[in-house]
Protein backbone atom coordinates (compact mmCIF):
# COMPACT_ATOMS: atom_id res chain seq x y z
CA UNK A 1 0.00 0.00 0.00
CA UNK A 2 3.10 2.19 -0.18
CA UNK A 3 2.47 5.54 -1.87
CA UNK A 4 -1.23 4.79 -2.10
CA UNK A 5 -3.49 7.50 -0.63
CA UNK A 6 -4.76 6.71 2.85
CA UNK A 7 -6.57 10.03 3.05
CA UNK A 8 -8.21 11.90 0.22
CA UNK A 9 -9.77 15.27 0.95
CA UNK A 10 -11.79 16.70 -1.91
CA UNK A 11 -13.40 20.16 -2.11
CA UNK A 12 -13.83 20.15 1.63
CA UNK A 13 -15.69 23.03 3.23
CA UNK A 14 -16.45 23.33 6.92
CA UNK A 15 -18.73 25.99 8.31
CA UNK A 16 -19.86 26.68 11.86
CA UNK A 17 -22.91 28.66 12.90
CA UNK A 18 -22.03 31.95 14.58
CA UNK A 19 -25.21 33.50 15.81
CA UNK A 20 -27.35 34.08 12.73
CA UNK A 21 -24.35 33.90 10.38
CA UNK A 22 -21.95 31.19 9.42
CA UNK A 23 -18.22 31.09 9.88
CA UNK A 24 -16.28 29.18 7.26
CA UNK A 25 -13.35 27.44 8.91
CA UNK A 26 -12.17 25.44 5.89
CA UNK A 27 -12.54 26.54 2.29
CA UNK A 28 -12.31 24.12 -0.61
CA UNK A 29 -9.52 21.92 0.70
CA UNK A 30 -8.05 19.30 -1.61
CA UNK A 31 -5.34 17.06 -0.18
CA UNK A 32 -4.01 13.52 -0.31
CA UNK A 33 -1.89 11.74 2.29
CA UNK A 34 0.01 8.57 1.48
CA UNK A 35 1.22 5.84 3.73
CA UNK A 36 4.39 6.61 5.67
CA UNK A 37 4.15 10.38 5.34
CA UNK A 38 5.44 12.64 8.11
CA UNK A 39 3.38 15.68 7.27
CA UNK A 40 2.24 18.77 9.03
CA UNK A 41 -0.60 21.20 8.60
CA UNK A 42 0.91 24.45 9.66
CA UNK A 43 -0.52 27.88 10.09
CA UNK A 44 -1.45 30.48 12.64
CA UNK A 45 -4.14 30.02 15.28
CA UNK A 46 -7.61 29.97 13.77
CA UNK A 47 -6.39 28.91 10.35
CA UNK A 48 -8.39 25.66 10.49
CA UNK A 49 -5.63 23.12 11.29
CA UNK A 50 -7.45 21.39 14.15
CA UNK A 51 -10.76 21.44 12.28
CA UNK A 52 -9.16 19.64 9.35
CA UNK A 53 -7.49 17.15 11.67
CA UNK A 54 -10.81 16.50 13.44
CA UNK A 55 -12.54 15.78 10.13
CA UNK A 56 -9.76 13.41 9.07
CA UNK A 57 -10.07 11.80 12.49
CA UNK A 58 -13.85 11.27 11.91
CA UNK A 59 -14.61 13.33 15.01
CA UNK A 60 -16.39 15.86 12.82
CA UNK A 61 -17.92 15.88 9.36
CA UNK A 62 -17.48 18.23 6.41
CA UNK A 63 -20.22 20.72 5.59
CA UNK A 64 -19.47 20.21 1.91
CA UNK A 65 -17.05 18.08 -0.05
CA UNK A 66 -15.58 14.82 1.09
CA UNK A 67 -12.91 13.33 3.30
CA UNK A 68 -12.15 9.70 2.55
CA UNK A 69 -10.06 7.96 5.21
CA UNK A 70 -8.93 4.38 4.68
CA UNK A 71 -11.42 4.13 1.84
CA UNK A 72 -14.35 5.35 3.93
CA UNK A 73 -16.05 8.70 3.53
CA UNK A 74 -16.34 10.21 7.00
CA UNK A 75 -19.60 12.01 6.09
CA UNK A 76 -21.44 8.78 5.48
CA UNK A 77 -20.21 6.86 8.50
CA UNK A 78 -22.59 5.75 11.21
CA UNK A 79 -21.41 6.54 14.78
CA UNK A 80 -20.46 2.87 15.13
CA UNK A 81 -18.48 2.79 11.87
CA UNK A 82 -16.76 6.08 12.73
CA UNK A 83 -15.81 4.67 16.14
CA UNK A 84 -14.46 1.52 14.46
CA UNK A 85 -12.42 3.62 12.06
CA UNK A 86 -10.87 5.56 14.94
CA UNK A 87 -10.26 2.45 16.97
CA UNK A 88 -8.68 0.37 14.22
CA UNK A 89 -6.90 2.80 11.93
CA UNK A 90 -6.33 6.11 13.74
CA UNK A 91 -4.23 7.16 16.68
CA UNK A 92 -4.56 10.54 18.37
CA UNK A 93 -1.98 12.61 20.19
CA UNK A 94 -3.25 15.72 21.91
CA UNK A 95 -1.63 18.92 23.07
CA UNK A 96 -2.81 18.31 26.65
CA UNK A 97 -2.10 14.55 26.48
CA UNK A 98 -5.69 13.64 27.48
CA UNK A 99 -4.58 10.82 29.72
CA UNK A 100 -7.13 9.39 32.13
CA UNK A 101 -5.97 10.58 35.51
CA UNK A 102 -7.38 7.68 37.52
CA UNK A 103 -5.65 5.09 35.33
CA UNK A 104 -2.04 3.97 35.57
CA UNK A 105 0.32 4.36 32.62
CA UNK A 106 -0.30 0.72 31.74
CA UNK A 107 -4.07 1.11 31.90
CA UNK A 108 -4.01 4.26 29.79
CA UNK A 109 -2.07 2.51 27.05
CA UNK A 110 -4.22 -0.59 27.35
CA UNK A 111 -7.50 1.29 26.88
CA UNK A 112 -7.66 1.28 23.02
CA UNK A 113 -6.98 -2.47 23.06
CA UNK A 114 -9.75 -3.07 25.57
CA UNK A 115 -12.14 -1.46 23.12
CA UNK A 116 -10.95 -3.98 20.54
CA UNK A 117 -11.87 -6.85 22.88
CA UNK A 118 -8.40 -8.33 22.62
CA UNK A 119 -7.29 -11.12 24.93
CA UNK A 120 -5.45 -10.13 28.12
CA UNK A 121 -2.25 -11.91 27.05
CA UNK A 122 -2.16 -10.19 23.68
CA UNK A 123 -2.99 -6.84 25.30
CA UNK A 124 -0.16 -7.17 27.77
CA UNK A 125 2.33 -8.02 25.04
CA UNK A 126 1.35 -5.01 22.94
CA UNK A 127 1.21 -2.57 25.86
CA UNK A 128 4.66 -3.55 27.07
CA UNK A 129 6.06 -3.38 23.56
CA UNK A 130 4.55 0.06 23.12
CA UNK A 131 5.88 1.31 26.45
CA UNK A 132 9.30 -0.02 25.54
CA UNK A 133 9.23 2.02 22.31
CA UNK A 134 8.68 5.19 24.30
CA UNK A 135 11.05 4.19 27.13
CA UNK A 136 8.55 4.13 29.95
CA UNK A 137 8.91 0.58 31.20
CA UNK A 138 9.85 1.86 34.64
CA UNK A 139 6.66 3.96 34.92
CA UNK A 140 4.10 1.26 34.26
CA UNK A 141 2.34 1.62 37.59
CA UNK A 142 2.60 5.41 37.82
CA UNK A 143 -0.39 7.66 37.35
CA UNK A 144 -0.28 10.68 35.02
CA UNK A 145 -0.10 13.08 37.97
CA UNK A 146 3.24 11.48 38.93
CA UNK A 147 4.79 12.05 35.48
CA UNK A 148 6.47 15.02 33.83
CA UNK A 149 4.93 16.66 30.75
CA UNK A 150 7.35 14.88 28.45
CA UNK A 151 6.58 11.52 30.04
CA UNK A 152 2.83 12.18 29.74
CA UNK A 153 3.23 12.89 26.04
CA UNK A 154 5.25 9.69 25.66
CA UNK A 155 2.40 7.77 27.29
CA UNK A 156 0.06 9.48 24.86
CA UNK A 157 2.27 8.36 21.95
CA UNK A 158 2.37 4.82 23.32
CA UNK A 159 -1.43 4.86 23.57
CA UNK A 160 -1.71 6.06 19.97
CA UNK A 161 0.81 3.50 18.69
CA UNK A 162 -0.23 0.46 20.71
CA UNK A 163 -2.85 -0.61 18.20
CA UNK A 164 -0.42 -0.09 15.27
CA UNK A 165 -2.66 2.36 13.43
CA UNK A 166 -2.03 3.36 9.84
CA UNK A 167 -2.46 7.05 10.69
CA UNK A 168 -1.51 9.09 13.75
CA UNK A 169 -3.04 12.54 14.10
CA UNK A 170 -1.11 14.82 16.43
CA UNK A 171 -2.62 18.15 17.38
CA UNK A 172 0.03 20.53 18.70
CA UNK A 173 1.89 17.67 20.42
CA UNK A 174 4.75 19.80 21.69
CA UNK A 175 2.86 22.93 22.70
CA UNK A 176 3.12 22.11 26.41
CA UNK A 177 6.69 20.84 26.33
CA UNK A 178 10.07 22.48 26.65
CA UNK A 179 12.58 22.37 23.78
CA UNK A 180 14.47 19.30 25.00
CA UNK A 181 11.33 17.25 25.57
CA UNK A 182 9.88 18.44 22.26
CA UNK A 183 12.91 17.18 20.36
CA UNK A 184 12.86 13.88 22.22
CA UNK A 185 9.21 13.39 21.41
CA UNK A 186 9.62 14.35 17.79
CA UNK A 187 12.65 12.08 17.36
CA UNK A 188 10.63 9.28 18.84
CA UNK A 189 7.74 9.88 16.46
CA UNK A 190 10.07 10.14 13.51
CA UNK A 191 11.67 6.84 14.49
CA UNK A 192 8.26 5.18 14.77
CA UNK A 193 7.31 6.61 11.40
CA UNK A 194 10.39 5.20 9.78
CA UNK A 195 10.32 1.82 11.51
CA UNK A 196 6.59 1.13 11.36
CA UNK A 197 5.77 3.17 8.25
CA UNK A 198 2.95 4.86 10.14
CA UNK A 199 1.58 8.05 8.63
CA UNK A 200 1.94 11.01 10.97
CA UNK A 201 -0.06 14.18 10.41
CA UNK A 202 0.59 17.13 12.69
CA UNK A 203 -1.40 20.26 13.24
CA UNK A 204 1.14 22.77 14.49
CA UNK A 205 2.61 26.20 14.36
CA UNK A 206 5.63 25.21 16.42
CA UNK A 207 8.91 25.75 14.58
CA UNK A 208 10.49 22.83 16.44
CA UNK A 209 7.92 20.48 14.88
CA UNK A 210 8.10 22.11 11.46
CA UNK A 211 11.84 21.36 11.34
CA UNK A 212 11.11 17.65 11.46
CA UNK A 213 8.35 17.58 8.81
CA UNK A 214 8.93 15.97 5.43
CA UNK A 215 5.83 17.59 4.02
CA UNK A 216 4.50 20.98 5.02
CA UNK A 217 0.95 22.02 4.17
CA UNK A 218 0.36 25.67 4.95
CA UNK A 219 -3.10 26.78 5.89
CA UNK A 220 -4.23 30.33 6.18
CA UNK A 221 -7.75 31.53 6.88
CA UNK A 222 -9.13 28.07 6.04
CA UNK A 223 -7.36 27.77 2.70
CA UNK A 224 -4.37 25.70 1.64
CA UNK A 225 -1.77 28.26 0.66
CA UNK A 226 1.16 25.93 0.30
CA UNK A 227 1.99 22.23 0.06
CA UNK A 228 5.68 21.45 -0.14
CA UNK A 229 7.85 18.41 0.18
CA UNK A 230 10.87 19.22 2.33
CA UNK A 231 14.02 17.94 0.73
CA UNK A 232 16.93 16.23 2.50
CA UNK A 233 14.73 14.67 5.20
Amino acid sequence: MNNSALIIVTNLVKTFPMGKREFTALKDINLKFNQGEFAGIVGPSGSGKTTLLNIIGSLDIPSKGEAVVMGQSVSGLSPKKAADLRNHHLGFIFQTYNLLQVYTVYENVELPLLLRKMSAVERKKLVLQSLEWVGLMDKIKSRPAQLSGGECQRVSIARAMVKSPEIVLADEPTANLDAKNSHNILQMMEKLNRELNTTFIFATHDEKVIKYLRRKISLDDGKVVGDEIVKNK
Binding site: G57, P79, A83, D84, R86, F92, F94, L99, P112, L115
Partner: peptide, 16 residues
Protein backbone atom coordinates in the same frame (compact mmCIF):
# COMPACT_ATOMS: atom_id res chain seq x y z
CA UNK B 1 -15.44 16.20 29.35
CA UNK B 2 -11.86 15.66 28.18
CA UNK B 3 -12.09 12.06 29.30
CA UNK B 4 -15.38 11.68 27.42
CA UNK B 5 -13.79 13.16 24.30
CA UNK B 6 -10.75 10.91 24.71
CA UNK B 7 -12.93 7.82 24.95
CA UNK B 8 -14.65 8.83 21.72
CA UNK B 9 -11.30 9.52 20.02
CA UNK B 10 -10.02 6.12 21.09
CA UNK B 11 -12.96 4.38 19.46
CA UNK B 12 -16.04 4.53 21.62
CA UNK B 13 -19.39 5.70 20.32
CA UNK B 14 -21.19 8.38 22.31
CA UNK B 15 -23.81 5.79 23.20
CA UNK B 16 -21.10 3.57 24.66
Amino acid sequence: QKEIGTHIALGMTQRQ
